[in-house]
Design a protein around this nucleic acid. Sequence first.
DNA 1: TATCGTAAACTGGTAGACCAATTAATAGCG
DNA 2: CGCTATTAATTGGTCTACCAGTTTACGATA
Lengths: 236, 236
Amino acid sequence: MQDNLAIFKEVEIEKPVDIIIRQIRDLISSGKLKPGDRLPSERMLSERFGLGRTHVREAIKKLEFYGILKTQPQSGTVVAGIGITALEGLISNILKIETSDFASMVETRVILGVEAARLAAQRRTPADLERISVALESFHKVALTGKAGVEEDFMFHMKIIEASANPVIKSLLMLVIPQIIEYYNKEGICTQGESMKAYDEHMQIFKAIVDQDAEAAAEIMNKHFHKILELTRSLK
Amino acid sequence: MQDNLAIFKEVEIEKPVDIIIRQIRDLISSGKLKPGDRLPSERMLSERFGLGRTHVREAIKKLEFYGILKTQPQSGTVVAGIGITALEGLISNILKIETSDFASMVETRVILGVEAARLAAQRRTPADLERISVALESFHKVALTGKAGVEEDFMFHMKIIEASANPVIKSLLMLVIPQIIEYYNKEGICTQGESMKAYDEHMQIFKAIVDQDAEAAAEIMNKHFHKILELTRSLK
DNA sequence: TATCGTAAACTGGTAGACCAATTAATAGCG
DNA sequence: CGCTATTAATTGGTCTACCAGTTTACGATA
């Protein structure tokens, strides 16, 4: 019952904010609004759409967040986007990242994780090694008890990602990983009992990073993710 | 002068919304608020911080967007986040993606672009090939005139990314690429004159994708990006 | 005493009024 | 006739009051 209700809620009527976002998107992608153009005032839009200014503001905030719009206080809101043609479907795509099929999410996580390991092996500082080591040990302790240790596992990978010295990769993974973990928790996919094997692989990855062996780090990380990727694909 | 002004604006006092976000983040990461806990009401928070409820709502909206909070209409807002330890620095990191150093952004764009090419070679449908072909031809036309054709170049890559059949990669690149292009435009870094060479590489990539030669596609794409990556690193 | 029903208090959602800064228009001066 | 200074209108930013659900507390009843 709960699930059925949830489904209905999903199909729910388009929210006011989404309506406005879509309309503005259309205005831009249809060429009525070009980059640099000033958007009609919030009051105008709210009246035009028959919706409160609150909603208009919310929509603008979101679009601004994606870099499509740029609002100048006490002056106006302008279209800041790049080539208009690219806008087609952009917003809906980004907005619906959470509904993206799960396999793609994991696939992306693997790609970025592997490359982060490669970079980490090249760039790690002594301080990085120390942090990774601590996280590794923390995971070890939990693994010994037989528990899954999702959080500790996550922290280990996080420290490697940080050692890659690429804040963008980190940010992007921060967008993706939480959703993956949440999905795992919800579906009850636990790697219970596999913890010690995972720890062993973690050890190998750590060693490769210590040795600054980028290829080995990437390869082992790839292998480490492989079974998860397989599992995920079979789910689909 | 403009730049100096921009710098001052950067150092500007912490905006009300950011203050609230930081405070809530602290509450969560310090353990005072655990996942599942209900947040104090908006009115409470606004009074507590001495800031209008509007700001509180805005902060909550942002945090909700990142999946940290979950607001239930007419009921309350709860902490929905994953492992709390992960929150440390999460928000500021994601929020400040636009200030991330540019080299990291390009590096990430290359990684995802190369892997997208690899996947595209494996998964491309006839329809994909058609779309890529059209974009390629479009770029060719512009290249013949000697112009840079930033937008047409972008579209070619976009079609490949779409052929990778991984919406998550597409979404993430959509977050990153516009900022890169914007930066290029601002700094006046144009690959003017290089267009025909780029077209030649595009051709090779297209051929590899047609042939479903994933390794070749990835390799050529990597080479294609290489000079840009070099250029970028030298800028830093 | 336990349980159910009702009402009051509280929740996030929304709309409108007000504010300060910016911009455009206009009147006055050279 | 052209330029500047002043003023009026417009902008996004903020706050306050109100709305419709939800939760909670309390009291009547069995």
